[in-house]
């Protein structure tokens, strides 16, 4: 009787779930939790604000032009007499809707193409990467401006171009993440078994790059918000009088000296949202181990 005939046994471990694990690590980051809280508040407001707002966001009230904050208008009114609080509460809705939709699109097309390119490799991959690199040589705002000057602006145009440009960045990231795994033997093993390409991409590779894609999504989201509000600020985003933070800042900036509240409150709203997303994204990146933090020294 040899020793190794004994079946190896160890005390059973508690149920393990990678997502739960990530969440537990995420929870340990105070800045991440602050970011997440801010984010949740913003999302809640965006969903419920049509029910909450005290005034109409677009109705011009000639009796209360440019009033400073008071009990009646907590954030004051703008030069058209519209309630700033109302407009601030509603002003993130379109931005969030457009960027979230574009983000989902970008992640899907960019992530999948990146993984496939990384896995397939060869001439196709190299040629595509040249195109991707060329696209990345163009500051994103310029691409948007080019599209807008040709097509004008509408929600569809905005969503598609944001999704296109962010997708390009994600292709790159997903591809290089995939390359790390393609060289590993579990992919070699799958190929040696004769698995189909799609099976390898979806079942073997995707679960491994999901972390990186999640972090990318969070980061791209905040970038898209920046781009969107920038375009909006330049006058290429939402058409007035729809409430939107970037637009509100642009409209009221000229009167900064007399009515600072009309631009400061939308600025605060926009700032807290992007900072929230970024804090959460940073903590998420750390939680999935993309930032090599301290490890057990063994």
């Amino acid at each position: 009787m040899t020793a190794n005939a004994k079946t190896l046994e160890r005390p059973a471990v508690v149920e393990y779930n990678p997502f739960k694990e990530t969440w537990q690590r995420f929870r340990r980051s105070p800045s991440g939790m602050i970011g997440l809280t801010i984010l949740v508040i913003h999302l809640t407001i965006a969903v419920t604000s049509p029910l909450l707002v005290p005034y109409s966001p677009t109705k011009i009230d000639s009796k209360s032009l440019t009033q400073s904050p008071s009990s009646e208008h907590l954030f004051g009114t703008d030069s058209f007499g519209r309630d700033v609080l109302t407009r601030v509460l509603l002003g993130g809705r379109i931005a969030l809707l457009i960027t979230l939709t574009a983000g989902a699109l970008a992640l899907t097309w960019g992530g999948l193409s990146g993984i496939v390119l990384g896995f397939v490799g060869g001439v196709i991959d190299e040629a595509m990467m040249r195109v991707v690199d060329a696209m990345l040589a163009l500051p994103s705002l310029f691409l948007y401006l080019l599209v807008i000057s040709a097509l004008g602006t509408s929600n569809t145009v905005l969503i598609l171009m944001l999704a296109f440009r962010s997708g390009i960045s994600i292709v790159r990231i997903a591809r290089s993440a995939t390359l790390d795994f393609v060289a590993r033997d579990f992919i070699t093993a799958a190929r040696a078994r004769g698995e189909r390409t799609w099976n390898v991409v979806l079942r073997e590779l995707l679960p491994n790059v999901l972390d990186i894609l999640m972090v990318q999504w969070a980061m791209r989201w905040s970038w898209m918000l920046l781009s969107f509000s920038g375009l909006s600020f330049l006058g290429f985003g939402i058409t007035p009088p729809t409430p939107d933070w970037g637009l509100m800042i642009a409209e009221n900036r000229a009167r900064l000296a007399f009515a600072p509240w009309a631009s400061v409150f939308p600025m605060l709203a926009l700032s807290t949202l992007v900072i929230g997303i970024n804090l959460a994204a940073d903590a998420l990146a750390k939680a999935v181990g993309l930032d090599r933090s301290r490890e057990a020294p063994v």
Binding site: S222, L226, S229, A250, S263, S271, I275, I277
Partner: peptide, 11 residues
């Protein structure tokens, strides 16, 4: 890094 340029500028 997070704040939009126009927000920083306006501040």
């Amino acid at each position: 890094m997070t704040l939009p340029e126009f927000v920083t500028a306006t501040f």
